[in-house]
Design a protein around this nucleic acid. Structure first.
Lengths: 376, 376
DNA sequence: TTGTAGGCGTTATCAA
DNA sequence: TTGATAACGCCTACAA
């Protein structure tokens, strides 16, 4: 019998051997009790449970992961958690993951390919069971693609799709969102509508650009190329866009995300133009605080929480082998009309938020509230 | 020689044995090359490197963690990543951690003790090397305290301190922040100043409450108890506070965080009172978007990014054993005067943001920018 | 029902 | 400098 050296481990966390010895049973029995699989007689079970309690035993999940080849951990790579778009998305992920016994390793790629690859390799080394990826522009290195395939670590794309990542994806109908917003701008009388888009190398920026074009086309408005500028989703590019666009005095502007809107508003401030009196504005991404500061923004809201939870659902199906067909989930955005578009100027009897009464409820930011916020 | 069974693993990730066999060396040599510790002859090193490359070998960090007893992973428990206060803090953590080769496991406690304990036990089981904890109100169970101590997993408290957690902590000078803000309100002429505080069971809410009181006292203003209400840091409590406070027509109000301010503004809207014309307002927590929407908020900014990176610094010192003395870092907040306090009403020649010219720069949200944003 | 022993993929010790 | 082999803590055939 090659029994483990029972050396002094009074200063170490208890192991399954310690428990076994304490309960005068074998490690098998302890394992069976802890994992609740094999049948264990009542007496032994009690002995084990007592020992577990007394020794404060907690199984070492590293060791378990090593033998079971799964860690119950998923990796999530987003551009930057500080971008207000991501927190709710990440929360949707974490909630869904936690509910299924998974933990979340958070990585910020800053939209840089090398950082992204570095993180992906790290996640692979840490043997995560799956990855949620908000891909940076550019293709994944073939070596990495191969490693992902060999290791059989499923990847679900978030918000963005790219040709080199042919797996599952959860996206939003960005073309429709942009189309709705711009159509609304046109409907209430704006003709010369400007666009500040995201980087066109990113699929959703492209889609929003297309939605913009389609809305103008549908309205029979010829688009003016100098009113369309490509930003990069950051504050500063919105600011620069504002400085270059506003002197052209468009009737309205559509911005592809919130951060650029912040920059754009700053530029308007400096130039001395006011929204919605001097120009109408609609943008992507809604936030709880948008309806109580002026101008109240007309926005296209994406179901961020849902995106996260849907992605986890797909990922776990993939991990458990329950899914074989490719999943491509496209969630529907929702237009929230407020006053920045200029709507209120034309219909003074209109109610705030007439399209989205839900906005009025002001849920707290607790978990239960999210469900209300983000259900589509 | 009890050599490992060389069974078919063409569909598994390569192990150190595969590399060793491929390079015709022992596992020791491979390990030595990979970790770059022992001296390995040039030829063998080349052979190993080639094999590593060819097999796409990446060491299994689970196995390594098991034997080295450290995972290079830290856990971080915050109330809720969706609360806009946390993303920048978390980013500060992740950046600092990543720079030192650590990964971050993200947990949302929703400020609930049971959820918090559940996560802490999980983190312990996953054998994180340390924990950053934004403590929920209430004491830690003694069992958990004991486990943390036994496992020698250091914990650094974030933002909040509690009697039962006598370890390191990184906090902000909340009393001073509140004092400065309220003193400013008083200085520009407000006499009846209301307070919406956070939950007094939380140390920083208490500190802000005290700072408020001290400022009034210093100004020789008697405080009116009915103008002081205790909220819970969520939007809805700010909303309710607004509904009950505003009819009392205070000159100004000081709110202990941003979420409650959002709710408060909503209430003001509904009641039909305007800021700063009808009441002055100052609150905690500054955000990049606050200076381009009306009313522009006068805020007390906490160095969120710095809090995160400082906490990681302490934690890593603790992990590496370089620190023995208790660290209690208190970072200094900074008052950003804008127009919600009513300042501009009285000095029409005043410049926006005269106290914080840095605000004007609008950094992108990339990592480098943060450093600029958050340096104290 | 319970125990034994081998293996998961590393690192580390001790010889060679 | 290298190699063989014992931990690390757990799960799990296979035996009893």
């Amino acid at each position: 019998m090659k029994s483990r050296a029972p050396r002094d481990r009074s200063f170490h966390k208890a192991t399954i051997y310690d428990v076994a010895r304490h309960a005068r049973v074998s490690v098998f029995t302890v394992s069976a009790v802890v994992n609740n699989n094999s049948h264990v007689s009542h007496t032994l079970r009690r002995r084990v449970e007592n020992a577990v309690q007394k020794l404060n035993y907690r199984p070492n999940l590293l060791a378990r992961g090593l033998v079971k080849r799964q860690t119950h951990t998923i990796g999530i790579v987003v551009r930057d958690i500080v971008n207000p778009f991501y927190p709710l998305l990440v929360r949707g992920i974490e909630d869904a993951a936690h509910k299924s016994g998974y933990s979340v390793l958070l990585c910020n790629s800053d939209d840089q390919r090398d950082k992204e690859e570095q993180y992906l390799e790290l996640l692979l080394s840490k043997r995560v069971d799956g990855i949620l990826l908000n891909k940076a522009p550019g293709a994944l290195s073939s070596s990495l693609r191969q490693q992902l395939a060999e290791a059989k670590v499923p990847v679900v794309s978030l918000m963005r799709i790219s040709r080199d990542l042919q797996g599952d994806a959860v996206v939003t109908d960005d073309a429709k969102g942009a189309f709705d917003a711009v159509s609304h701008l046109v409907r209430i009388g704006h003709r010369r509508v400007a666009l500040v888009s995201g980087p066109l190398s990113v699929s959703n920026a492209k889609a929003r650009w297309n939605g913009f074009c389609k809305a103008l086309e549908r309205a029979g408005i010829e688009r003016e190329r100098e009113l369309m500028v490509e930003g990069d989703y950051h504050i500063d590019s919105g600011y620069r866009a504002g400085l270059s666009l506003l002197p052209l005095r468009p009737d309205a502007v559509f911005l592809a995300n919130y951060l650029m809107t912040v920059g754009f508003m700053k530029a308007a401030d400096e130039i001395g133009l006011r929204c919605p009196e001097d120009f109408g504005l609609a943008s992507f991404d809604d936030y709880p605080w948008l309806s109580c500061f002026r101008p109240r923004l007309t926005t296209v809201e994406l179901p961020k929480y849902e995106i996260g939870s849907a992605a986890v659902r797909i990922l776990l199906e993939r991990i458990s082998g329950k899914r074989s067909r490719r999943a491509l989930i496209k969630l529907t955005p929702e237009l929230h009309v407020r006053e920045s578009c200029g709507f209120m100027l034309r219909r003074s009897d209109a109610q705030d938020d007439y399209l989205s009464p839900r906005e009025k409820t002001y849920p707290a930011s607790g978990a239960t509230a999210f469900q209300g916020v983000s259900q589509v």
